[in-house]
Nucleic acid binder design. Structure first.
Length: 275
DNA sequence: AGAGATACCTGGGAGC
DNA sequence: TGCTCCCAGGTATCTC
């Protein structure tokens, strides 16, 4: 499910709801998500500590506590959060509950259990999850520049789409936005990464930033499962120009949008606008 | 090092 | 209705 804009939307919602409150208990409703849940460690690290800050790294949400610990929450394909009064009837796919000292629960829901939730000592390299340690640059930061992308694509024979989905290079782009940003940048997703020109690298970077920022402003994209903390759907879906539009006319040239598979994943593009 | 395939899990929709 | 098959926004782990 969630790519960077959805994780950002949820992180902002959590920041509003959690900061200043203490976690008084942690309960799991399943033994494992993608990995076994280490309930003992979650309880030991979190219970009794106040939330000080909620941030995001790539598609990962990081909840920081006053005791130096933090929670990494990766939403996988179907992860979501909600805040509700303790005792509220459980939803079918709720997997984890954090009780707060204001009478509310922070609950983690995840239909497919592809998500990951773990606690760690913030800033301690040895305790930091491998996912965070190996993450590439933030696409909205200044590190993600045309120069950077151009250099990282040199001599790479994989499709440019696959390179942009590689979280170890740039962190947060997922399967929806990669189709959108390549359409805007007029680059075919199947192009060998090494053939991207310096000018195209600039364009890809510019369009990545604008598509992500526009989506954040709209509260993310909802295709099926995504919802913000309050249960509302993201509004960026109506602004998607190629994703899920196979067989429909390109808004710019009228040519039919094509759907192909790259790296085992659905990919959409305009065969006339994109080269 | 990097590419390609496969696996994890559950539900929704299409087609019969 | 109910079955089977395919698809889904992510990431880790194998093999070559």
């Amino acid at each position: 499910m969630p790519e960077l804009p959805e994780a950002e939307t949820i992180a902002r919602g959590l920041s509003n709801q959690l900061v200043g409150w203490e976690i008084t208990g942690v309960k799991n409703l399943v033994p494992a998500l993608r990995n076994p849940l280490n309930l003992r460690k979650l309880q030991k690290d979190l219970v009794g500590a106040k939330v000080t800050e909620v941030t995001r790294r790539g598609k990962g949400i990081i909840v920081k506590l006053e005791n130096g610990k933090a929670v990494l929450m990766q939403l996988g394909m179907t992860g979501a959060c909600r805040i509700c009064p303790t005792g509220t009837k459980l939803l079918k796919h709720e997997r984890l509950i954090f009780h707060l000292d204001n009478g509310l629960d922070w609950r983690y829901e995840d239909i497919r259990k592809f998500g990951n939730v773990q606690s760690f000592t913030f800033g301690d390299e040895n305790d930091t999850p491998e996912f965070l340690r190996s993450l590439g640059v933030e696409p909205l930061g200044t590190d993600f520049s045309g120069k950077f992308l151009f250099e990282r694509t040199r001599k790479r024979i994989c499709a440019v789409k696959e390179l942009l989905l590689n979280q170890k290079i740039v962190a947060g782009i997922g399967n929806i936005y990669v189709s959108e940003l390549l359409y805007r940048a007029k680059v075919r997703p199947q192009r060998e990464a090494g053939t991207v020109t310096r000018r195209e690298a600039d364009l890809i970077v510019d369009e990545t930033k604008s598509v992500l920022l526009e989506s954040i402003a709209a509260g993310g994209t909802t295709i099926s499962d995504y919802k913000a903390l309050d249960g509302t759907a993201g509004k960026f879906e109506q602004d998607l120009r190629v994703y899920g539009e196979a067989g429909l006319a390109c808004a710019k040239c009228g040519k039919l949008i094509e759907k192909i598979t790259i790296g085992g994943r659905s990919t959409f593009y305009c065969p006339r606008c994109q080269r």
